[in-house]
């Protein structure tokens, strides 16, 4: 029977491999987007540290009923705002919207962690607040930020924005489900299984997000160069 450390080790390997591939991709993307691209490399890079700590068994919080892996929440608190920040920058969103996106996403993680370390009725209340914050993020990504993208971006970039946004929203929705089904919620899933699912999700969201963005950016550079100029909204 595989132990929880096995899943953490596999997660660590996945993040390492993903970071290596994304770092190689730095040479493929156009010059003008390279600074922004570093955000994408940083996401699995931060996760490497988190998983290394998990493998070593560092950074856990023991509540009355179960163990909470606080390192994970620290990882998410850093990486998920970077994800939405990248989306906002790609869409040429207003500065105000960027701040809102990052702030709401950070709140989502903070409330999720608070819910995980507290006991039953309060924990669900905090979870609910986190869910509301994430709903705000989703609202912005489909509303104001998407409009900014439609105004500012060419066909290829707009397509990339939509794919990345849908990817993030759909896959991130699985995290709260794991929270609810796991020991923090109704306890249908034991800690090993939820660790397996979360490790897999982490690798897929962090590395997958980066790979899709890398492919998109490099394709744009090979087709027409970076087209940051405004195009008439043709859709």
């Amino acid at each position: 029977m595989a132990t929880i450390t096995t899943w953490f080790t596999l997660g660590l390997l996945g993040e390492l491999l993903g970071t290596a591939v994304l770092a190689y991709g730095y040479r493929l993307v156009p010059e003008s987007t390279r600074r922004r691209y570093l955000l994408l490399v940083a996401i699995p890079g931060i996760a490497i540290v988190a998983y290394a700590l998990l493998v070593l068994g560092v950074g856990t919080v023991q509540t009355e009923s179960h163990t909470v892996y606080a390192v994970r929440y620290a990882d998410w608190l850093l990486t998920t705002p970077i994800n939405v920040l990248f989306l906002g920058l790609l869409a040429n969103a207003a500065r105000e919207d960027l701040v809102k996106l990052v702030g709401l996403q950070a709140l989502t993680i903070v409330f999720g962690f608070a819910g995980a370390v507290t006991a039953a009725p309060l924990s669900y209340g905090l979870f609910g607040l986190g869910a509301l914050a994430f709903a705000g993020v989703v609202y912005l990504l489909y509303g104001a930020v998407a409009e900014a993208a439609g105004r500012a971006l060419g066909d290829l970039e707009l397509s990339l924005y939509r794919t990345l946004r849908n990817f993030v929203v759909v896959l991130w929705l699985v995290y709260p489900v794991v929270w609810l089904l796991g020991l923090a919620g109704i306890g249908l899933m034991d800690v090993e299984t939820s660790s397996l699912v979360i490790s897999y999700l982490d690798v897929v969201t962090k590395v997958g997000f980066g790979l899709i963005a890398m492919y998109g950016l490099s394709t744009i550079s090979s087709r027409s160069g970076p087209t940051a100029t405004a195009h008439p909204a043709d859709d």
């Binding site: 849908n166 759909v170 896959l171 089904l181 249908l188 090993e192 397996l196 999700l201 897929v204 997958g208």
Partner: peptide, 25 residues
Amino acid sequence: NSDLVGLILLAVVNLGLVGVTIGGN
């Protein structure tokens, strides 16, 4: 039970992945 739920979630993740990257496109 726990493993079953885990498997279902993994399947959902994969479905979401395919749906977003290929179907959505």
